[in-house]
Design a protein around this nucleic acid. Structure first.
Lengths: 123, 123
DNA sequence: CTGCGATATGCAGGCGGGTCGATGCTGTTG
DNA sequence: CAACAGCATCGACCCGCCTGCATATCGCAG
């Protein structure tokens, strides 16, 4: 498990597509969104993305966030399990990097006007 | 108040753009994402969007959701305050409709690769 | 005016989540 | 081998949120 994202990228569900999504899909999508819906975690993603090599270790993230090291590890764990981050341990350090297509996938799931096939008229 | 979305659409913040977002922007974006990060609310958006006229009243939503009427009203209130839904009262009924650009705005905020201007090199 | 149906609000219970301090584990350094 | 640094895990506290029940409010019908 982990990568909760992968479990719904294939079915290509979209809450705003055609018909209502079922409970299972709603809970999966909500799960990933829950991982994103936290100021600390959004800042973590932002910090990691804007880091020199696109990666950062925990010790570089605690200070700018103003949170304790266990708390930062906790958030990184949640983001990783959601499929938004990937972890690579080099020596004593654990480097986190953003999974390239992850956020984009979520953005796509929230973007309905992708297909003009469905009527929508002139509103 | 209401429309928490409007308060951050102008600054055009993006957690994955160039530099790290500050605490205020992170909290604003997290606030809107929190409104989305709930199975019941995702289903509500989906149900409303796929309704005949793109709108629905509370009485039509309680049954498919399997939640009590007060709970549904509660979720609709949260979605409305987040700027994702708009409410129109006609007679005894309250009709809810999706704010067209709302979800798209969030999707855009989560879509970084829009501008190649920022270096990114070959990683 | 009285009654009824549709919503919103108040209140309370219960669960999940964010945070920290303490601790354990692993790999590096001397 | 001993000491130390980086990180993950554990336990606990506290707050916020989802949910339902009861109640208030508004609009319409008779």
């Amino acid at each position: 498990m982990g990568t909760a994202l992968a479990e719904m990228t294939m079915p290509q569900i979209s809450p705003l597509a055609g018909e209502p999504i079922d409970r299972a899909d709603a809970e999966r999508l909500a799960g990933v969104l829950k991982a994103l819906a936290d100021p600390a975690r959004l800042r973590l993603l932002s910090l990691i993305q804007s880091a020199p090599e696109g990666e950062a270790c925990v010790c570089d993230l605690t200070a700018p966030l103003g949170l304790s090291q266990p708390t930062v590890s906790h958030h990184l764990r949640i983001l990783t399990e959601a499929g938004l981050l990937e972890r690579e341990k080099r020596g004593v350090w654990a480097f986190y990097r953003i999974v390239p297509a992850a956020i984009g996938t979520i953005a796509d799931l929230l973007t309905p006007p992708r297909k003009r096939a469905t009527k929508k008229s002139a509103r």
